[in-house]
């Protein structure tokens, strides 16, 4: 490429741009890229923060292969993502469809459904959840009305994870708002045309709404998979920081925190962080790969 010498005005513009970007450059180098490189280095060392890091090569990575707690944390996290994300998206889509019918008080309902997604990540809601799903909690009170004696959902290793899944699904509001915005974009004529051709409501949903909404479903799916794979606060609060009972809520992030900040195995925790990068990257890549089969961008784009 031929570079023409920049004019005086262009040089000035360029200089100004660097000044505006200066904080970003410093942050990029000092708070993002630098630490990433350091993390890669730490992942190949034995490091406990107190003495200097000892080079061990790929030992941390090979150790991960036969770490039963790591395997447990991966399976807990996968189950959590695989259950909560599809459920959350289904609820969000269903409610967005209902709200989009132009009912009265749309703004009110939208707010009520949206609120939990703002509060859901807080410690306070984690505490509330411990209670709601406790032995004497709200859920069991409700089941009691039908004569069913529910278990202590949080204290039972078989059910503890499901209470966290429910908590995540409870925060469907933000996805719902994105769906609502997407539904608004679908031109009314499409439905009129479909109705003229004799398509019922179900048919319209299947052949008009759903295909046109697939890009937004996909967008929500990618975002949700990435973020829910990294959930931390609620598992931490509900399990009292342990990932218990019997590691049944040991999220990957929780185990990483425990190794890094609980046991000061900074090297091993760094290696775990890089495995997380690989997993999240792979899940996103898989999503994009399969998206070609079901996401419809119109006009063959």
């Amino acid at each position: 490429m031929l570079r023409r010498p920049l004019s005086r005005a262009a040089r000035k513009e360029e200089r100004t741009a660097w000044v505006f970007l200066l904080p970003w450059f410093v942050g990029m180098a000092g708070v993002t890229l630098g630490p990433m490189i350091a993390s890669l280095y730490f992942s190949m060392t034995d490091y406990n923060l107190l003495s200097s890091p000892q080079w061990v090569g790929f030992e941390n990575y090979s150790k991960m292969l036969d770490d039963p707690r790591l395997r447990q944390s991966l399976s807990v996290t996968f189950v959590y993502v695989a259950l909560s994300v599809p459920l959350l998206l289904a609820v969000a889509l269903a409610l967005a469809m209902v709200l989009n019918r132009g009912i009265k008080g749309l703004a009110f309902y939208r707010s009520v459904y949206y609120l939990p997604s703002l509060l859901g990540a807080s410690v306070a809601v984690g505490i509330l959840w411990r209670q709601v799903f406790g032995t004497e909690g709200l859920v069991n009170k409700f089941l009691g009305l039908f004569g069913v004696q529910g278990p202590g959902w949080i204290s039972n290793p078989d059910t503890a994870l499901y209470s966290l899944v429910v908590l995540h699904v409870w925060t469907f509001g933000s996805s719902m708002v994105i769906f609502l915005a997407g539904l608004r974009q679908i031109p009314e004529q499409y439905y009129e045309a479909a109705a003229l051709d004799g398509a019922g409501r179900l048919h319209q949903f299947r052949h008009v709404t759903l295909p046109l909404l697939t890009p937004i479903i996909f967008f929500n799916l990618v975002l949700q998979v990435i973020s829910s794979f990294q959930s931390f606060t609620q598992a931490f609060v509900v399990s009292g920081g342990t990932g218990g009972p019997s590691d049944s809520t040991l999220f990957y992030s929780l185990y990483l925190y425990d190794e890094g900040f609980g046991r000061l195995h900074m090297g091993y925790a760094s290696a775990m962080a890089w495995l997380l990068v690989v997993i999240v990257g792979a899940l996103t890549a898989i999503n994009f790969y399969f998206s070609k089969r079901w996401v419809f961008y119109g006009d063959g784009k």
């Binding site: 993002t32 630490p35 993390s39 730490f42 923060l49 990435i226 900040f261 900074m266 962080a273 990257g281």
Partner: peptide
């Protein structure tokens, strides 16, 4: 950088800030 999990950064940042 939007895609970088916070867990990659949190350990080296902690080391730096400490």
């Amino acid at each position: 950088t939007l895609m970088v999990p916070v867990y990659v950064l949190i350990i080296p940042q902690y080391v730096m800030f400490s």
